[in-house]
């Protein structure tokens, strides 16, 4: 970032210094893309200069090789610099990679580039990658650094790319929220209510059928006069037992239920034997 902001000022100051000291540059730059199998020199050649970079981006295929030829100059003279790099910068990730030109004593520089030389970030980049040439050396001559072309990587989509696993970096991880099992479902209430009503409706039907068959409670007064206490207690204990069941269902625990049921059961047993004796007497008397 810093460098990008600094660059214009450097170039500007470099331009000011030109009168005092010479500056690094290059000339006779040609770029050619050669695909595999084609004859040497068959690929398209494009010329560019420090002041006029290539307008359209250069496309580099899987088996292509990019060849850059240029002559480095110091001032007007061809000269060999200490540093002659082609620097690629991925605009999205900011990854930088520099490739070193082979420079001869005469200043003739050569660079070959294929996709094999590029790091994985460039191969997966969707945007064209700006390529700049850096020429610099010791002494007072001002260095050269400027974008000369855009490199767009074309890749055969059918060939899988071995993307290395991302290395571990300490950072916040994505949130995880536990997914709860869904609650048990009940059928629609209307269906439940219809069937519950059918069940409840069965009781009056049953009672009605009994009534048509002649069920009645006419002997109640007779039974009560014959054995009042035992009948009252027996029927009472049966009702109390149902009451105990209701309490157990709603609030009581087993330890509250069992003693109560024991007491009521005992009452039912003792009073029941008397009450049923009375019923037997009525039967023997031909009243049932």
């Amino acid at each position: 970032m810093f460098l990008r902001s600094l660059l214009p000022s450097i170039l500007l100051s470099g331009a000011c210094v030109v009168s005092a000291a010479s500056s690094w540059s290059f000339e006779d730059a040609t770029l050619s893309i050669q695909s595999k199998g084609s004859a040497v020199g068959a690929g398209a050649k494009e010329k560019f200069s420090p002041t006029s970079p290539l307008a359209k981006s250069v496309s580099l295929g899987t088996s292509d090789s990019l060849k850059l030829l240029l002559t480095t100059t110091d001032g007007k003279k061809a000269k060999r610099p200490h540093q002659a790099f082609l620097t690629l910068t991925d605009p999205t990730t900011g990854v930088e990679e520099s490739f070193v030109f082979g420079v001869k004593e005469s200043g003739k520089a050569k660079l070959d580039l294929t996709q094999k030389d590029l790091p994985i970030q460039f191969l997966t980049s969707t945007k064209p990658i700006p390529a700049s040439i850096v020429i610099g050396s010791f002494g007072a001559s001002s260095p050269y650094n400027s974008k000369v072309f855009d490199l767009s990587i074309t890749r055969d989509q059918n060939v899988p790319l071995a993307v290395p696993e991302k290395p571990v970096r300490y950072a916040a991880e994505p949130e995880i929220h536990h997914i709860f099992r869904s609650d048990p479902q009940s059928p629609p209430k209307i269906i439940t209510l219809v069937f519950a009503a059918a069940v409840v409706g069965a009781l009056p039907v049953l009672l009605g059928v009994w009534a048509t068959l002649g069920a009645n409670a006419n002997h109640l007064s007779k039974a009560l006069s014959n054995a009042p206490i035992s009948h009252a207690l027996f029927v009472g204990s049966i009702l109390a037992m149902e009451g105990i069941f209701f309490m157990y269902y709603t609030t009581w625990n087993l330890f509250q239920t069992l003693p109560a049921a024991g007491v009521v059961g005992l009452v039912a047993f003792i009073s029941g034997s008397r009450a049923l004796t009375e019923v037997q007497e009525r039967r023997l008397a031909g009243l049932r």
């Binding site: 049953l206 069920a215 006419n218």
Partner: peptide, 16 residues
């Protein structure tokens, strides 16, 4: 439960 209670009553006190 209700049917049982009514049945007990009928069994005990029903006159022919």
């Amino acid at each position: 439960v209700a049917g049982w209670v009514v049945f007990v009553g009928v069994w005990l006190y029903s006159a022919p």
